[in-house]
Design a protein around this nucleic acid. Structure first.
Lengths: 255, 255
DNA sequence: CGATTTCAATAACGTATGTTACATGGCGCA
DNA sequence: TGCGCCATGTAACATACGTTATTGAAATCG
């Protein structure tokens, strides 16, 4: 299990009290489920019941057309919350599937009601999470509409890299990277063949080292420039605190 | 001015009390501003101060790359709320511009705090609005990633049509349509020339009648099929009430 | 009310990316 | 330890869409 990534992320934005920590801690240990890689957690059309918090592993949200065309609309990394308050909707408009093995905690409607009434800092933190997710989705719209294949791929890799770093899941200049080229194709709207060509080009330019299930980014600045990447949409700073310069902070979740 | 579209929309989802009505009424008449067509209301980089409610007119949210490439990431129609609780972020990651002349009401942080504490039905309604907007953004991701030019255009027109109808802004099978082909190009990620070709094709197929600033949809079903349009993501129904069959309901906002 | 800009329409031509096909490599599993 | 499967890599060819250019019509403005 690992509530650490969530807490680490939220605490960059709002300072949570010991009580807040306790609340999150209990909520995320009560109803935990484990899934294997490449299975669906939630299917389009189902009635949403709980909100899911990713404790470990990677997952994605995807939609599919009748004829099978498939688009990954977002990735879930450890510490991500699927959709605060989804349960007010009647049915899911998309599916959620795992990439690696995944552990999730199910957060109930009652949990959110209690939080709303009694824990304003958690409310703020969840709103931040919600707004950032919306901003990410807008940026994907931008990428798909305007960026070339190379820019789009570079941009996506930058985003994943920064989100992983925020969650404390990078080691030096490298990180775990379980996505296949097929996954990248479904996320970028490119064909698998062109994803391969594009990755080759990024490699040739020395922008990434991608082998097996590990990605290294030797020079983040250059990759960002290649992807026309402006990190503002991730809103990783708040009231003067610049997340960008945090290297390896004290493990906020340990206590 | 017209709070009618907002109230009509929200009431499809949650029944609001007379007090709720009064609250919304006051909030939307206190600080109203008027803009001409084709001007910016909000610019990327600014500190968000208020939440904007569109009382009348059309606007859009857009992002731009350094080299000028521009993507419209969403449209705002009368009754739309720009971003509940944006003010918790440090700066805007996108701009908002008008298409037609627009009237907006600025909703303050204090308004939302008060609503959160005292008006649970409005909170639910706003959450619904937030979740639907997120779903729309995902569907745009899907469109840009997977749909062909023709499908994408048909899909966008269906979406706008249904949203206008929900806001009570369609007349029979036609509606006001102030978007230029350039706007459509920026929203669909196509070139202006190809937008023109695509519209010609839709016209030739009898799917739309678009002339001047008026759009008619003689057969919505056929247009939906052409765009592989599944309305589920608009979440226009709730607990058995099907919005789709509502024709011209009693003017909920009059009282 | 003519001047000026914006928008729509159409044509000719260019290219980024898709498609199909097949070969190679790594890795789980019997 | 070898079989089979899935992911990666590459080539040849196809196409949906972009670009540039020009024209006429329709708003907009002084």
């Amino acid at each position: 299990m690992s509530l650490a990534s969530l807490v680490r992320k939220l605490e960059q934005f709002v300072r949570l009290s010991p009580v807040d920590h306790a609340i999150l801690n209990r909520a995320s240990s009560e109803r935990v489920r484990h899934f294997g890689p490449r299975v669906d957690i939630v299917r389009e059309g189902e009635k949403p019941k709980d909100v899911h918090l990713i404790l470990s592993g990677w997952a994605y949200r995807y939609k599919q057309l009748e004829d099978g065309r498939r688009q990954v609309v977002s990735f879930f990394l450890p510490g991500d919350i699927c959709d605060v308050n989804v349960f007010i909707l009647r049915e899911m408009d998309h599916s959620i599937g795992t990439i690696t093995a995944v552990s999730i905690a199910d957060l109930s409607r009652e949990f959110f009601d209690r939080v709303a009434a009694e824990h304003p800092r958690i409310v703020t933190a969840f709103w931040w999470e919600t707004l950032v997710n919306a901003a990410i989705q807008r940026e994907w719209t931008m990428s798909l509409g305007q960026r070339t294949a190379l820019e789009r791929m570079a941009h996506l890799l930058c985003e994943i890299w920064l989100r992983l770093r925020l969650a404390g899941l990078t080691q030096g200049d490298s990180c775990d990277f379980p996505l296949t080229q097929g996954d990248l194709a479904d996320a970028t709207g490119l064909s698998k063949v062109h994803v391969n060509r594009t990755l080759q080009e990024l490699r040739a330019d020395g922008l990434i080292v991608l082998k097996g299930k590990t990605l290294a980014v030797p020079n983040l600045d250059r990759l960002m420039r290649a992807g026309l990447f402006n990190p503002n949409y991730l809103h990783m700073d708040h009231e003067g605190r610049q997340l960008d310069v945090v290297a390896t902070p004290p493990d906020a979740a340990a206590g």
